[in-house]
Computed example of a mutant assay.
Amino acid sequence: MRIQKIELYHIKMPLKFTFKSSQTTLKDRETIIIKATDELGNIGYGEVVAFNEPFYTDETLMYSKDILEYVYIPNVINKKIEHPFQIHLWIQPTYPMALAGLENAIVDLYARRHKKSIMDVVFNEETNKSIYGGIALGDLEVENLIEQIKFYKNEGYNRFKIKIKPEDGLDKLQGIREEFPHIQLLADANRSFKKGQIQILKQFDELNLTCIEEPLDSGDFQEYNILQEEMNTPICLDESIQTLEELNTAIKHKALKVVNVKVGRVGGLYYAREMIKLCRENNIQFWIGSMIESGISKMLHVHLASLKDTYIPGDLSPSKRYFEKDVIMPEITAQDGMITVTKGYGLGVEIDENVLKDYTIDYKEIGEE
């Protein structure tokens, strides 16, 4: 297989609501859609999920764009590729989100070319045909959070992740837990607590949380070890874990009980698979997170979340929750809180080229026609 052409669509998708965390506020979502074409005309799609500002990781969308155009894509154009994961021999994951988007497009292309699904290419094991959806809610007033949880519970959802900050996170979660004693409840602090606030964090144990995600601003594994020894609530790491080496170190330091695996953050499906293997070997729970992203990346996470030993439902909900129109056909939908894992080759969905072009604010083509 040879990649003959790669197209980069820098898109801007208006959100249906303003999403707030302790680190940022989003009204629109800009990403880069990568379209790869081989010498036979087969096509695959991937997505770069970096943000415009470096609040989540240091990699920004513009860094991703430049490294793709001038370094990563020239390394794969017109080279013979036996398997998509071969590109990891040529490219270091210095910019993991850029690398993930490129790899995902090549995996999708390869799967379609060989008439296989994404999971047939990446994992050789039985998976679930449908998955439970999960709702991630921003840093909102507690009354608003309770109202939204009521709405989504009526839609069949039972797993909710709440963005929190030190000033009022505990109060919000206490209010939610009082109203909903039996839901699966997670807290995501996005590194907003300091080492000196451990006593506040210990109070979260009374809330029966499924886990607390990224509480400490330092990201120091030794500090997480101390915190986990003092807390009953499982600590889940997300943005602190970008490489296999970091995950291995965190496990050795006993800094976590759970890890949130996001394909874009860790550098692609190859690295996601290796992290899942490492978790299985060390009795660390894993679950499949998600970004605010288009259906191209979201559907990839739906497939990954179909693994039978995932810890909890991921941050996966219908396309219509975020966007008036997604770029995939069919869009992601849920019935009674359940999402069907698409069948078919590659991602199992098609791309609505008209919608993609409508959202495009910049376009580049690299390689031959």
Rank of each mutant, 00 (worst) to 15 (best):
R29G: 02
G196L: 03
P96S: 04
M1A: 09
G44E: 08
R29H: 06
E368N: 10
F19Y: 15
T310P: 00
A250P: 07
D217P: 00
S290G: 11
S317M: 15
A272F: 12
L300T: 13
E147R: 14
Y345K: 09
V327T: 06
Q184N: 15
E246D: 11
D220R: 03
Q242D: 01
G101R: 07
K153H: 11
I11V: 15
A255H: 09
T249Q: 13
V107Y: 14
G101M: 07
K357P: 00
M329E: 08
W90N: 11
L99M: 10
G133P: 04
E239L: 01
L256K: 04
Y322Q: 12
V49F: 04
S218Y: 09
R321S: 02
K153M: 15
T57W: 02
A105L: 11
A100N: 07
I366P: 04
D315L: 06
L137F: 10
I118C: 02
I32F: 08
E30Q: 13
G101F: 06
K65L: 12
E178D: 07
Y157T: 02
F51D: 07
E141A: 13
I226H: 12
D309V: 02
S319D: 13
I296Y: 04
K320G: 12
N124A: 07
L227A: 11
E143S: 13
I118N: 01
G101T: 05
Y224R: 04
F19W: 14
R2Q: 13
I176L: 11
A98Y: 08
E331H: 05
F85N: 08
A334C: 08
Q174M: 12
K153I: 10
N42D: 11
P234M: 14
L300K: 05
Y152E: 11
G267Y: 01
I226G: 04
G134Y: 04
Y9S: 04
M62D: 15
K194M: 10
Q197P: 09
I339V: 07
I235R: 09
A255F: 09
N42Q: 06
S117K: 06
L247N: 01
I226P: 03
L99P: 00
S290P: 01
I73R: 06
I328C: 00
I131V: 14
D38F: 08
Q92W: 02
I366D: 03
I81Q: 03
A189T: 08
E239M: 05
N42E: 08
I328T: 07
K35S: 02
L170N: 02
A36P: 04
P84L: 05
M338E: 14
S218P: 09
A250V: 10
V327L: 05
K257A: 12
I33K: 00
E39H: 05
G46M: 07
A305R: 01
T243W: 04
V349Y: 00
G314Y: 10
Y63T: 13
Q335C: 09
I296S: 04
Y95R: 06
K79L: 13
T249P: 00
H114Y: 09
T18R: 12
N282W: 08
Y63A: 13
F286Q: 01
K194A: 12
E293W: 12
A50T: 05
E365V: 15
Y322E: 14
